[in-house]
Design a protein around this nucleic acid. Sequence first.
DNA 1: TATACAAGAATGAACGTTCATTCCGTTTTT
DNA 2: AAAAACGGAATGAACGTTCATTCTTGTATA
Lengths: 191, 191
Amino acid sequence: MSKSDKREEIVRAALELIAENGFHAAPMAMIADRAGVGAGTIYRYFENKDVLIGELYKDLEEKMLPVIQEGYDINAPLRERFLHLGTRILRYFIENPLHFRFIEQFHNSPYGVEHRRDKILGEKNGCNIFRELFEDGLSQQLLKAFPLTILFALSFGPIVNLARDHILGFVVMDETLIVAAIEACWDSISK
Amino acid sequence: MSKSDKREEIVRAALELIAENGFHAAPMAMIADRAGVGAGTIYRYFENKDVLIGELYKDLEEKMLPVIQEGYDINAPLRERFLHLGTRILRYFIENPLHFRFIEQFHNSPYGVEHRRDKILGEKNGCNIFRELFEDGLSQQLLKAFPLTILFALSFGPIVNLARDHILGFVVMDETLIVAAIEACWDSISK
DNA sequence: TATACAAGAATGAACGTTCATTCCGTTTTT
DNA sequence: AAAAACGGAATGAACGTTCATTCTTGTATA
């Protein structure tokens, strides 16, 4: 196994174990086992567990953003833009259940306390798309006059819940339902 | 300190520590310390940590339900009923941040896996009020024709997010905002 | 009323387990 | 052959739980 393959295997193993049963079920020895490396080897690639988890989180964030933005037309009508982003995010979570489960675990763990603010897609980096979208909507008076935080809550709250319910098998979100659900979210924020 | 005082102190200490910094920051020794009892004493009141946590959760559930239902008129118009329940829940969380934070931690911990399904107010016990509300709305054709799970997600998702954002200080939910936000949720589920 | 005693409650040091991390002998690469 | 990478046993810290001992409280006896 090549060097970079090994790093990848370690990250993959960590993602799987944590997503499947939470941090408490992912000790370093078990991660090493599933990655097919020795326990000590992990420490040649990551300073410690915190760093491993943190980099895993960053990896996922970096994979997610471009997928969500793909095909996004900043000049389209507001509603269309919202539906585009909303359905993309929900679809991404549904198609990448491990990513979703890990991110959720992360945000509810000691590892993720500092990241608390970026609610899965915060006002970080270049990804202020949602913020811009909402600010646009507010200035055009198309959205209800809520603080940004509330608009976020009305949009992301349902999305995260729907993704979780789908992944845990409580509902099957097909393409029709995905679109309809995000349209419903739009109804909650639009005037 | 009387016997029942002691039990109460233990439960209170556990609630505080877990709500403030999560399960990882609430070892039995620390709970004992904050309760002002010896570590061994806890085991005179609770078989083990799982049981302590479980009873704490049940306690909170029992305190919350009557508060939310108070003044609920099952014969009122559907919208009014929804607003009543929605605002009550959100207000309850805002006024009892420790309860909210504990319940959230619980649902995202090994302790709470089995309770997963009752999303803070599930189809348990006598508390099917929300379910009934939604079924009523569906049969009267006042609500969008979604599966119950999705109606739950559209309602609880925002509520939980708003409570969290308020408690963490990202937004200040006054009475006006509370009502407006729940009205917005109504817009997402109503036809 | 004062004293002795029993029974339950409370305690916290000690134990066994689990886990992240380190260390060192072995294997692979250069 | 030197250097780097590797594996997994060893280490020590943290935790939940136990248990021998101490404290408290209520009752019986003088």
